[in-house]
Design a binder for these strands. Structure first.
Length: 555
DNA sequence: TCGGAGTAG
DNA sequence: TTTTCTACTCCGA
């Protein structure tokens, strides 16, 4: 029953740009702002602006239906992701400009995590305790005039749980003070992002990535939420005081970042004692709503039981401990520094079958050309010598091709879900000619198809009717430094991951009932425990509330 | 190194 | 109504 202690030493801000694709198009063409706007990929509306949502449109809706619901919707094709990728990088650079360090991480195109701990620490030290209401947040250590005024006696923006007034804020609590500053910094950045770049965002403020992300979505769009203390369970408290527990417990299992569909289904099955009727994308499918609380409080639940439920071929070794941590809102993962070079680049397209081999070859050429274009865009830069020529920053060692079959039709005409995600891939060494910067892209693509991709396709799609082909993906992976010079971004992030290991390695086997409360402060992966007076079990401090409720619950 | 599985937006 | 176009991590062989 052991989980690493929740560390509350950091302040993490999570940014989630509101309906990102739509905002990119609106920034490009402001006339779209007042219209219902939807972005289409194939037959699907992948996202839409809030005007469209007001009129009943949803994400991931069929284009047909969307037009029926809102006939005057403006639909823009969004299959080419270039402008979204560029906008995402530009906003990332903008937000990075606020930071003193470089602990800022992108998640997909529209989310960013920031570790602002050093800015907060600096400004907490600057606080004048005689006049907290007229405080100054310094944004630049070099220039003390750069910053903004704020009221350090209250949170900026909504909190979770909502606080009716500011009188309840404990200003002597260090965590409260840091989060108050965090909330003001988040607000300042949101306002500047809107004013200077025209993007609104939904923002969360807490002490780790998981919590910041989860709490942010409490108030959206164009707003922010701070998860306020208490974070840990007071030992003398009968138990219901942790706002972390309260936040986690209120969520359906699958809503927890890190718990995906497969994991959630296995847990639902265990908790319900039967196959769940849970269907994704069917809101409130009444009986199969299993919450974090349901799992956490299930008799005997702990890392060991989670491991036994979740293990299978290919599952991570520490899955039980990891999920147990997630259920308690514990997440010690670092905000990673930006990678300068992606670990892989892939291009794919989906099909409803292809008519003949020539069509396959044509599609492969098209994909290969896009891939080489992306390689040139993302893996090269201008030579500093002023020759005006491009040079490779990194070269992939491997080329991979994946295919997916159409899922078989069920008798009722629907498709079998469990079949869906199956991809088959073949990979091999990347031929060096793809790095030629002088040759025409289409010529290189054709050569790549004829010398490599077609044979890979045949091996990954053996003796199959082309009617069943649903998808082709072509990727390059295994990036190596092209120059003897070092590749900083990648190396540093690798070092980070290794340094993190010790804090995540303790497993249920390593940490047992011997570890008690007086032994350690939990800085090095050991945990506070209490002996339960009722049953004598050693309970980690953060689980005291849950444990008390376990005893209180009727059998 | 390869191929698969799971998670993320 | 699991559909789009990706990108990352982890595992076993």
């Amino acid at each position: 029953m052991a989980v690493p202690r929740q560390k509350n030493g950091r302040v993490i801000i999570h940014f989630d740009y509101d309906c990102f694709y739509a905002s990119v198009l609106e920034a490009e063409n402001p006339a779209l702002k007042s219209l219902p706007l939807a972005i289409q990929q194939k037959q699907i509306i992948v996202t839409c602006n809030y005007e469209a949502r007001r009129r009943g449109l949803r994400k991931l809706q069929l284009v047909k239906e969307a037009k029926k619901i809102c006939p005057d919707v403006v639909i823009i094709l969004g299959e080419d992701l270039t402008k979204f990728r560029d906008a995402s990088k530009s906003l990332y650079a903008y937000l990075r400009g606020f930071l003193w360090g470089s602990k800022i991480e992108r998640l997909g195109f529209d989310e960013v995590f920031l570790d602002v701990t050093d800015m907060i620490d600096y400004n907490v030290a600057l606080l004048s305790h005689h006049d907290l209401q007229h405080s100054f947040f310094c944004l630049d250590r070099e220039d003390p005039t750069k910053g903004f005024e704020f009221d350090a006696t209250r949170y900026c923006g909504p909190t979770y749980p909502p606080s009716p007034d500011a009188t309840g804020v404990d200003l002597s609590d260090p965590l409260s003070r840091r989060l108050i500053l965090g909330s003001h910094l988040a607000f300042h950045m949101r306002m500047r992002l809107d004013a200077e770049r025209g993007y609104t965002a939904t923002v969360g403020v807490s002490t780790n990535k998981l919590l910041a992300k989860l709490v942010g979505s409490v108030n959206k769009p164009n707003n922010q939420t701070t998860l306020i203390p208490p974070y840990s369970v007071d030992r003398d408290d009968e138990g219901c005081s942790s706002n972390v527990t309260k936040l986690m417990d209120s969520h359906e299992l699958g809503k927890v970042p890190g718990i995906g569909f497969k994991t959630a289904q296995k847990l639902r099955t265990h908790v319900l004692g039967r196959e769940p009727t849970f269907q994704p994308y069917v809101e409130r499918s009444q009986d199969a709503q299993v919450t974090v609380r349901d799992v956490r409080q299930f008799p005997g639940m702990g890392p060991a039981m989670l491991t036994s439920i979740l293990v299978g071929p290919g599952t991570a070794k520490d899955i039980g401990v990891r999920v147990w941590e997630l259920l308690h809102g514990v997440d010690n993962s670092e905000v990673l520094e930006a990678r300068t070079i992606p670990t892989q680049i892939s291009i794919e397209d989906s099909y409803k079958g292809l008519p003949h081999n020539d069509a396959v070859r044509r599609e492969l050429c098209h994909l290969a050309a896009s891939l080489i274009r992306r390689m040139r865009a993302d893996l090269t830069k201008m030579d500093e010598t002023g020759s005006g020529r491009l040079r490779w920053l990194a070269r992939p060692r491997t080329v991979r091709l994946s295919t997916r079959l159409r899922s078989p039709k069920m008798p009722d005409g629907s498709r079998n879900y469990s079949f869906m995600n199956q991809r088959v891939s073949r990979s091999g060494p990347a031929p060096s000619f793809i790095f030629s910067l002088d040759d025409d892209i289409d010529a290189l693509a054709t050569r790549l198809v004829d010398e490599l991709l077609l044979s890979m396709f045949r091996r990954s799609f053996p003796a199959r009717s082309l009617e069943e082909l649903a998808l082709i993906n072509v990727a390059v992976t295994n990036m190596t430094d092209a120059e003897p010079k070092q590749n900083r971004g990648q190396d540093i992030s690798k070092m980070f991951r290794q340094e993190e290991m010790p804090s995540t390695t303790p497993t249920s086997a390593v940490v047992d009932a011997e570890v008690f409360w007086e032994e350690s402060d939990g800085e090095d992966g050991t945990y506070h425990h209490e002996l339960c007076p009722r049953c004598g079990v050693s309970v980690p401090y953060f689980a005291l509330a849950a444990h008390a409720q376990y005893h209180a619950a009727p059998d």
